[in-house]
Design a protein around this nucleic acid. Sequence first.
DNA 1: CCAATTCATAGCAATATGGTATGAATTAGA
DNA 2: TCTAATTCATACCATATTGCTATGAATTGG
Lengths: 148, 148
Amino acid sequence: MKVSTKGRYGLRIMLDIALNSENGCVSIKDIAEREQLSDKYLEQIISTLVKADLVSSVRGARGGYKLKREAALISVADILKATEGSLAPMSCAEDNGSCERYCDCVFSFVWEEMYKAVMDTAGHITLNDIVERSRKLHTVIEKEETEL
Amino acid sequence: MKVSTKGRYGLRIMLDIALNSENGCVSIKDIAEREQLSDKYLEQIISTLVKADLVSSVRGARGGYKLKREAALISVADILKATEGSLAPMSCAEDNGSCERYCDCVFSFVWEEMYKAVMDTAGHITLNDIVERSRKLHTVIEKEETEL
DNA sequence: CCAATTCATAGCAATATGGTATGAATTAGA
DNA sequence: TCTAATTCATACCATATTGCTATGAATTGG
């Protein structure tokens, strides 16, 4: 039930883009440097984010990536679904047609309820919530530093 | 974020014991036969259930396993925690002390809320709920068969 | 044209998953 | 007391997944 690096890195990448894309787009190199991630691995993860329509890419020199829609309209569920594949504990919870035993499975309701719970929570946290949290945390740290 | 076979088999094993332990205890062989699982793999999973104090074992001839407490007092969360290790999407969500960056991590609240959501749902479904569901489903199937 | 960039794919080491195999320890019942 | 049935404890192994590296083609601003 653990979230893999793809999911975690995905969140960090999205936050990084959100925080640094005022002037145009953000390149993989920049993100990799700031986030201390391997740029080649990051490239793979970001490409799944492109395919999921969460970021758009600009090719060629001075190219890079930017959010496809505003941060308040991107949920944590969107990002994790794109990078992790799915948030369902069992695939049947997502598309119950996938399992032919669905009707007489005693456990299906368990997976469904768990899936609903996760989707509900992750679906209601937006990238913007994280951006705000990050800005707040940053100012606190800066304040602490000036107070020293 | 998928639940592995250990978690799924764990649930099936617990249900099987609950349904078949009226007269004493249930042997691995019997469970394996009914559930169509490899008895040796099953043995491993059941031993984690013993360590988690969910079932107790009776050694020797005519030995086997039985629930350590009544089904209504065993939750799906208990079973999945025992077999899957943990239901936390990130270990920090469970014991925030484990991560030294916990305080200035922008994402910790995300993992915490997801963990709370999962634990709340899985914690409120008991083995007895599944037993009842199973019995109800069984009578429905029997009814359908006699109607044919 | 060229340097900076994304895009696409292949490969690979480490770890986790899903088992199998072997045999010792324990014990009810003949 | 023997024996068959059972759990308990390890060790092993094949396969899949994860996390990451490498190479090079395609694209494009300057």
